[in-house]
Design a protein around this nucleic acid. Sequence first.
DNA 1: GTCTATACTGCGATAGAC
DNA 2: GTCTATCGCAGTATAGAC
Lengths: 195, 195
Amino acid sequence: MARKKNSSADVTGPRIRAAALRLFARHGYAAVSMRQIATDVGVQAGTLYLYTADKQSLLFDLMHKHMQDLLAELDALPQAHNPLDGLEQFTRFHIRFHRARSDAVFISYMELRNLEPENFERIEAMRRQYEAHLGSLLARGKAERVFDISDTKLAAFAVIAMLTGVNTWFRESGRLSLAAVEDIYWHMVRKAVGA
Amino acid sequence: MARKKNSSADVTGPRIRAAALRLFARHGYAAVSMRQIATDVGVQAGTLYLYTADKQSLLFDLMHKHMQDLLAELDALPQAHNPLDGLEQFTRFHIRFHRARSDAVFISYMELRNLEPENFERIEAMRRQYEAHLGSLLARGKAERVFDISDTKLAAFAVIAMLTGVNTWFRESGRLSLAAVEDIYWHMVRKAVGA
DNA sequence: GTCTATACTGCGATAGAC
DNA sequence: GTCTATCGCAGTATAGAC
């Protein structure tokens, strides 16, 4: 008989990470206890330690996977034919990606200070890599005189901060669709870099 | 004899708030214990409760004073003659004010979720007031056709997010002075709103 | 006004039964 | 693979001496 397989072993790990992600985002890493995570998943506290070395590893793994996904999806974008198309693609990608993973984004920005130094450095390096991608895009456009930018690094910071800010106010039920928001922000970004 | 007055009673309260501000900003509200704050000030833990009802009040008082100062200094700015001047004034004010109080800014953005609902609502109302000030400035410029903005609210969010972002990377010892950063950001803001 | 001492609760993590 | 039970410690807050 095809008795339903007890596959809890295969899914408990992901369920733990999903619960931790949501709880860390909602209440903050320091405010969430291992017991709360366990209760949310439906196991006892001790069981968590079969899937993670300790609480710190749980946080680091969530942030590391988020940054890996971000860089992988950025790399997977089709090659743009010119800096202006590339910037539009980046703008829309950033808004969509960050919106779809608001919990992970929130954690990755807010809980940096709760990472041990070595873990912090690894995450920061990945973030710098993301910023550098936009930076080189802007530099190329500046060299080709399609962008009017005085400082490439600052322009990259400004664009990223502006786009990430969408997550602080956007609601699915709000006045504007995400597609409409993308359009409006793209026009602001485009003008900001003088294109 | 003019023996030095033991004025500890007058300064202990402010010293507690200063220590809490720095520690909350550095490690997060949930991660900081009352014992740590007391140690930092140089008193015993019990003494803190002579100056604050509880830990939550300490956090709320810090955030509330920050927002009060922000709105008061915004109100104290000289009247601008036109929307463009007003926007430049706002841009430079926002960067300077936020830079000078990076700890309070950090707390006021990051620890909102640790406020009890009633306290949260009071702080949020003050933030909306600040955003509304910029919003009406942008709306005036749009009506006078000196700004090219498709959505006033989104433009206000975008400008504030962009400017607040300076705090995440600016260092006194860095490549650029704060005055230079102000100039660069003002040019980006100006272009972004189509002025 | 500050101290010492402590009540009470909850924490992260581990040991060993099943 | 998950449970129960527990260790050792730290948390907020309070009581009462000085």
